[in-house]
Design a protein around this nucleic acid. Structure first.
Lengths: 201, 201
DNA sequence: CATATAATTGACCCAAGGTCAATGACTTAA
DNA sequence: TTAAGTCATTGACCTTGGGTCAATTATATG
C-alpha cells in the first residue's frame, strides 16, 4: 500500500469516526454532511469520494462490530448447533446495544430504503453476515445434528426475522427494554422449539 | 357536520387516496408532495393543512385496514387466548400484505424516525392498537386461562416484536416470502411455546 | 348584511444533498 | 530527473423539493 492509498484509507477512517460520534450523539437527521466533513477536517466534496449518498456511511459504521461475530463463530466449529446459534443471537444484540439507538435506527431505515444500493464490494446489504448463519445450519445437517431435509433457507430467515424484530422494536420503543435480557429469553424459550422438529433425536 | 366540515373531510380523503395509489405504485421517496396534491386536485399548501410533514400521511393511510382488526377481536370475546392471538397475528400480516411493500416500508421508516411526532389525536404512534393485545392478555388472566403473575407487558412486546420483525424482513427481502405462510408457521410452532409457562393447566 | 372563522391557494423561501472543473500531490515509466 | 498520468481533494455552485405564509375565497354566525 503506497503513500496515496494510505492517506485515502486514513481519510475514510476519519470520516467514519467523525460520523459515528456525531450520529450516535445527535441522530442522523440532525447532522448534515458538512458537520461530518468539518469534524473530520476535510472538504464536503471529499465525503462523496467515499460514499455515494449521505446514508451510505451508516452501513460502514456498523459493519465493524458485527464482522467480529463471524470470526468468533469460526472458533466454535465443534460445538453443538444450539450453542452456536445462541452465541450468534446474543452477540448480535450486544452489537446492537453497543452501536446505540441512533445508529441502529438509521441502519434499519437505510436497508428499508428502496433507493439504497450498497457501495461495498460484495454488494452485501445486511451488515451482518447472513451467510454465516446459513453455514452454521448447513454444517449441523452435515454433522447429523439436524435432519437432511431441514429447510435451511427458512430457518435462516426465521432467526434473522427474530433478531431484526428485536432491534426494530428496541429502536421504536426508544430503548425501553434491555436487548440482552430480551435475546436471552428468546434463546431460552423459543430457539429450541424452532429447531425441534428438525433435530435428530 | 356542516358543509364546510364535510368539504374538509373530503379534501383529506382525496389526499389520502391519491397518496395511497402513488406511494403503492412508485414508492414514497419517488413521489413528492406536489404529485399528491396534483392527483388530489388541490394546491400544495392544502397538504399542510392536514399533515404536518410529508411523512405523516403514511400513518393515516395504513390506519384504516389495521383498525378493523380491533373490531373483529371484540366479537371473539368468549374464545380461548391462543385462538384470539392467532387471529390477531394472521390479520396483522394480511394487512401488511394488502398495504404493500412500499407503504409498509415507509411506515416502518416513519416510526423509526426520531423526528416523527404523530399528528392524530390520541398520540398513538403505532398504527395497530397495541393496547388491544394487552387487553386480550389481561382478559385471559381474569378468565384464569393465564396465571395471575403473567408478565403482560413482556408478552405484549414479544408478540409485537415478532410481527414487526416479519414485516420488516418482508420489506427488506423485497417480498421474497409469503407473509401469510410465515405468520402461520409462527402461530403453529412458537406461539404456544411462548404462552406455555404462563398457561394454567 | 356584517363580522368572524376556516379552508384554500401558489408564489416564494431556503436548507442541505449532491456535482464538478480546477488544483496539486503523488506515482510511474522512460 | 523529468514529464506524463493518476487520483484524492477542494469549495463554489447547482438543484430539488419540503415547508411557509399573506392574500383570497367560501362558509358560518348573530
Amino acid at each position: 500500500m503506497n503513500k496515496r492509498q494510505l492517506a485515502a484509507q486514513n481519510t475514510k477512517r476519519k470520516l467514519i469516526t467523525a460520523a459515528l460520534e456525531l450520529i450516535k450523539e445527535n441522530g442522523f437527521d440532525i447532522i448534515n454532511v458538512e458537520d461530518i466533513t468539518r469534524k473530520a477536517g476535510v472538504a464536503k466534496g471529499t465525503f462523496y469520494t467515499y460514499f455515494k449518498r449521505k446514508e451510505d456511511i451508516v452501513l460502514d459504521i456498523s459493519r465493524v462490530p458485527f464482522s467480529e461475530i463471524v470470526d468468533e463463530l469460526l472458533l466454535m466449529e465443534s460445538m453443538e448447533i444450539t450453542k452456536k446459534l445462541t452465541h450468534y443471537c446474543k452477540r448480535f444484540m450486544e452489537c446492537v446495544e453497543s452501536c446505540g439507538i441512533n445508529i441502529c435506527r438509521q441502519w434499519t431505515r437505510d436497508v428499508l430504503d428502496p433507493n439504497h444500493v450498497p457501495n461495498n464490494k460484495d454488494g452485501q446489504k445486511w451488515n451482518f453476515d447472513v451467510e454465516m448463519l446459513k453455514t452454521i445450519l448447513e454444517n449441523a445437517v452435515m454433522d447429523n445434528e439436524l435432519k437432511p431435509d431441514t429447510p435451511i433457507e427458512l430457518l435462516t430467515h426465521v432467526i434473522i426475522c427474530e433478531l431484526y424484530g428485536m432491534m426494530t422494536c428496541w429502536c421504536m420503543s426508544d430503548g425501553k427494554f434491555e436487548p440482552l435480557d430480551w435475546v436471552e429469553r428468546f434463546c431460552d424459550v423459543q430457539l429450541e422449539k424452532i429447531l425441534e422438529q428438525f433435530t435428530v433425536k
